[in-house]
Structure formats: structure tokens, C-alpha cells
Design a protein around this nucleic acid. Structure first.
Lengths: 352, 352
DNA sequence: CTGAAAGCGCTTACAG
DNA sequence: CTGAAAGCGCTTACAG
């Protein structure tokens, strides 16, 4: 007598199709070596059953380990911002380890384009199954993306996006909107005759991110007919002395600056200047939950910090790779993070 | 010849202890029927190996399904707030299904204490392995907790906490700090001679949550020597007519109210009143990302909404139960959610 | 192009 | 108190 009860999963498919489970497995994973005819029959049954593979069993049986790489800027003296995404990546790693997924982290120097290119080489040569990358330099990233496409390796961008590069997913802020939010906060209590200062502190001349933010910032002024005059300054040296020198000059030229907006995490340098020069009445807004900035929040020199959940970016970036490579589930291409507003009063609950 | 290569997991433990894997399994799960001697020997080996069980294999082999219950207020005409935690719970459910975990949701009427008690009965009688609950009514929750403790069922509170009830975890806001943040935002551009209005709209007279929030709100005024006079009103009927009547009266008595703070999600009712009575110059802050409130954000009547990631609360609440029951990992007892500030400019990215 | 058999690391009756 | 054996739902050589 044959077994009467319905079997589960691949066995049931095999029974119905009158083949072995090995053949079912081949079809399930699009492997070669199955006749079109049996393939069609099996696929029909899979559809009919609305078969959902048991990932537990799959990962348990498969000895193949999946290896993911994460390519991020190193934490530097200047900023520990990137420790947050790294945390998120580690969190994802812990969860995925169970499923036979390994994670390797590669760090580069944000002030050194060559180190970025070098690490890309390393990652590419090591043959990872999926890659998370912070696309800090455009041209190098472009080459990287082309190579990944050629090798069919999925890759995810976090923190900033370069569109049209066919990344599996972008996970990070909508920078333009983020600048828009900055402008709202900055003008919320600003008197109409006061000037507003946009400060851009960066060694990279052509950083597209800051331009996006500034664009959004200005858009808010237009959309809301804000009368305030906007003054803008680019500072190419990031050390305190240089920043202070430039700011002294700007404040000398413009007596009535009521608020300042810094387009990145270097806002603490400006805070330091404002404090030293007794200008803490100037509203100050900038980016990122890093220690130096939080200290100036605490000190009432920085009014608001805008943040984009950096740890979640790392976590979700890795999970996006996991979703494609392990679960074989679809992934959203654009994942804009919330634009969080951090103040002296709520920062203690922000980081988890 | 014996097998030379080291085995993995339970097999290796069994080999070293000279017992069968069944016995190892018994020790691993604290089951009865193992002599103290072998138990000690096995435990020593487990420790020595720093053995980590493979949860995949465990869940796959075990036919036992784990069932979790979630007990939440139903979405009502008044508010769809609770759809967000429910979403998070569903998200958790989808992830846990793989591991043989089932989730069942029980809904009660927030305006009906009896329905809360009824659902508690149902949940308790059904014999779930773990329970997530929104402890909306104190006394009933107290009884519920006692019963769970007696039966050794872990339970998690979300959204609001009742301390000293031995819940596995609380996941939700620090209400006092949340009120504090509200005060900061409310006073940020408030002129010193203006009055501030605290509005409490709730049928429940003794709702401890609102008192916590108000306490934090007032604390900010003290800590920062805010000169503004605070006017306070309790409204026991939640319909628009009643609210409008009360507010008309308060605004009649106090000509110089510059800002209003509503201690819950009914802020949209106040917004509606302010708009209808042409008082939109009054700054307005309240709670929760619900449709009606977002509409008034969009309309510039509500200035800020404070939110505590309701979907994450549901998700993390279920995950806490999963951690104890399936992974057997420790769980943080207090999980304060971030106090998020939502504005017209950033709300579109808030909900995911 | 296809299948029989072993195995992933656990758990579960069942028998003693 | 303990163990042999079967099995969870897949995947993987290996053989044909």
C-alpha cells in the first residue's frame, strides 16, 4: 500500500510530479539539467500548491555559506559617525549567522580616495555574494557598480545615493527633504530681518550630498516666502582654526546673522566657534548624532540635530542583501529613512 | 575504528559525555529524568565547549508550535492609532512563522473596561506561551499579571507601563520625558507674556499616562524658568461639540493663549476648533501619527506631533517574547522608545 | 536528464 | 534514568 497522507513541501511536489526531490530542488533553484517538460510540470505544481520553501530546512541542509561584505568609512578623529552603521551591520550579522551567513567589514579613509579604490579591489577580488557600500566617491563607485553588474553581485548603497547605478537598494536619507526640514526648524523662531548662514565644511569640493541638502534648504525659503537673506560659505579646511577664521570674517561682514545651518556633522566646530566668540544666541542646526554634537546640544549651543538613523541604515542594508540572497524575496529599491529631529530633551532615547 | 573527527553540537557533547543525544537534549532543556551526575557532567561539557544550540535545527525538528497572543485596543472611529502596533506585530509574525511561532490577536474596546477583562479571560483560557498586552486599565492588568506570574507565562507591556508588575519587558515611551520634549517645542518660539494651555481630552478620569506627560511638561517650565502662565483643562467628553464648548470658554477667559499642548492623539479635535474659530496663530502640539492629525500638520494648524514609533513597539514586543521563548536569550526590561518629532516637512518618511 | 541515499543539527516517541 | 532510531524539510554528491 502506498502512503496515503499528503506529504509536505518538496516531497509532495515530487510525488505529484512523479519525480525525485532532487529534480524538484533543481527546478526550485533554476539549476540546469532538467528537461523543459518536467520543469514545466513541476513549476505548475509549485504554483498550484502555492509552495513556500522552508528556509530553515534549506539553510540547515545546505553547507554553502553566504558571505557578505560591508565597505564603510573608518571611524576617524574627526568623526565617529560611522560607528553607528557598523553597529547596525553587526546586529544584522548576529541575526544572520544562524542562517550560515558571514559578514566581513572593509574600512577606508574618507579623506583618501585611493584607500576607497583599494578596498573596492579587495572586496571584488574576494568574491563575496553581496556587498553593502557607502558610495563616498562617485567615479570609483561607478566603476565598482559596473563590475558588480558584470559579475551579477547585488550591492546596496547606504547613507548617500548615486542614482542610475542599478544598486539593489538605496537605504538612506532623502537629502533634499532633509535640508527642507532643517530650514523649517531654523526659521521656526527666526525674526524676518535676520540673516541665515549656510555653512559647508568639507575638503571635497564637489560633494553632491551637501548640494542636495542646500538645495532643499533653499527650497523651503522659496516655498514659504521666507524674507530672510541667505549667506553662504564654503570652508575647505576642516580644522577648528580655519573654520574659526572663516566664520570670524563672515560674522564681521554680516552683523545680523540670526541662525546658522551646517550641512554635515561638522556642526560641532561651528558650535565651538559660536561659544568661544559669545554668539550662542545664534540658532544652530546641523547633522548627525555624534558625541561632539550631542555635547553642544546639551550645552544649548546646537538647537537641533538632524539624523537619519545610521544604525538602521547598516542593519537594513545588510538585511536587503539577505532578503535577495537567502530568502529570495523582493527588496524595495528606494528606502528613504525618517528625518529625525534630535534635541537636548530627546537625545537620550535616540540611540539604541 | 572510532570516528576521529570532531562532531558538532549535541553529537559532540554526547560523544564526550558518553551518553546519547537524547540525554543531552534532556539536559539542554531542563527536562526531568536525568541523574544529577550525568547532568553535571553534560553541563560541564556544554560550558567548556561554549555550546550554542542551532535554533534552525531545533525549530525544524521540534513539531511543537509556540503560540503568542497580542491584546490591543481595537481601531475605532475615534482613532486608528492602534493599527500601527498591529502592523508591527504582523511584521514580527511574518518573521517568526518560519520558526513555528503562531500569533493570535485579541482586540478590545478602549472605552469599555469590561471588554478588556473579557479578552483577558479569553487569552488566559487559551493557554498561550507568551502574551503582549497594552495595559489600558490598571486593576484588570494587575489581575492579569498575577495570573500570568502564577502560570509562568511571560508577558510584555507596550505603549504604557505599570511598574512593579514583573512584566518581561516594557516597550514604549518615557512619558514624563515625552511631555518635557513637548514643552521644549511649544516654548521654542513662544513670547514670554503668552499663556500656555494644557488640554486633556479623555473619558477616563484617572488615566495615569496623561498625568505623567503633564508632569514632564510642567517640569520643563520649572527647569528652564519659563515665565509663561499655564492654564489647564480637562475635557471628559471626546466629541467635537463638547471639546469646542469647553475651549470656547477657556479662550474667552484667557485672551492671551499663545500655545496649546494636547496630551494625547485627540489633538486633531483641538486643531479643528482652532481652525474653525480662526485661531491658527496659536501653536499646537500633540501626540501620534494618525491620519486626522497629519492632515492638520499639512494644514499648518498642528505644529508638531510627538510619536513613539508605535509599529516598532508592536514588533519589538513580539520579538521580546520570541527571544525568551524560542532563542532563550535575555531581554531588556525597560525599552524606552525614541521620542520622535514629526512635522509637516518630515512626516512622509516617518511611517514605514 | 534523473534518482537513491545520506546528511544538516536537532527532537521525539518508544522501549527498556 | 537512558538509548536506538526515525524524522523535521531541505540539499548534495554520486551514479547511471
Amino acid at each position: 500500500m502506498e502512503k496515503e497522507n499528503e506529504l509536505f513541501g518538496v516531497k509532495e511536489i515530487a510525488r505529484r510530479a512523479n519525480v525525485s526531490t532532487a529534480t524538484v530542488d533543481r527546478v526550485l533553484h533554476n539549476r540546469t539539467g532538467v528537461s523543459e517538460k518536467t520543469k514545466a510540470k513541476i513549476n505548475a505544481i509549485i504554483k498550484e500548491m502555492d509552495y513556500q520553501p522552508n528556509i530553515l530546512a534549506s539553510r540547515l541542509a545546505s553547507k554553502k555559506i553566504i558571505s557578505l561584505a560591508a565597505l564603510l568609512p573608518d571611524v576617524s578623529e574627526e568623526t565617529d559617525f560611522w560607528s553607528a552603521p557598523l553597529n547596525g551591520i553587526r546586529r544584522a550579522e548576529a541575526e544572520m549567522k544562524q542562517y550560515g551567513v558571514q559578514v566581513q567589514v572593509f574600512l577606508f579613509d574618507l579623506n583618501n580616495k585611493d584607500s576607497f579604490a583599494d578596498q573596492i579591489r579587495l572586496v571584488l577580488d574576494a568574491g563575496f555574494h553581496g556587498i553593502l557600500i557607502s558610495p563616498s566617491f562617485i567615479e570609483e563607485t561607478r566603476k565598482f557598480a559596473a563590475e558588480c553588474v558584470r559579475r551579477k553581485i547585488p550591492y546596496v548603497f547606504i547613507d548617500s545615493d548615486i542614482p542610475d547605478l542599478h544598486s539593489l537598494s538605496y537605504i538612506g536619507p532623502h537629502l533634499r527633504k532633509s535640508g527642507y526640514v532643517g530650514a523649517k526648524l531654523l526659521t521656526y523662531r527666526l525674526e524676518p530681518e535676520k540673516k541665515v548662514l549656510i555653512i559647508n565644511i568639507s575638503k571635497e569640493i564637489d560633494n553632491f550630498n551637501y548640494l542636495e541638502i542646500e538645495d532643499g534648504f533653499r527650497a523651503y525659503f522659496n516655498d514659504n516666502n521666507q524674507p530672510n537673506e541667505i549667506v553662504r560659505i564654503d570652508i575647505r579646511e576642516t580644522d577648528y582654526q580655519s573654520v574659526a577664521r572663516h566664520l570670524t570674517y563672515v560674522f564681521h561682514l554680516n552683523k545680523d546673522i540670526g541662525a546658522a545651518f551646517v550641512t554635515n556633522s561638522r556642526v560641532h566646530t561651528v558650535a565651538s566657534f559660536l561659544k568661544n566668540s559669545h554668539r550662542t544666541h545664534v540658532s544652530l542646526i546641523g547633522y548627525d548624532f555624534v558625541k561632539e554634537n550631542v555635547d553642544y546640544l546639551e550645552d544649548n549651543v546646537i538647537d537641533f540635530l538632524i539624523c537619519h538613523r545610521p544604525d538602521d541604515q547598516g542593519y537594513r542594508g545588510m538585511m536587503a542583501l539577505y532578503q535577495t540572497l537567502v530568502v529570495n524575496a523582493p527588496v524595495t529599491k528606494q528606502n528613504y529613512m525618517p528625518i529625525d529631529i534630535v534635541t537636548k530633551e530627546n537625545y537620550e532615547f535616540y540611540q539604541n
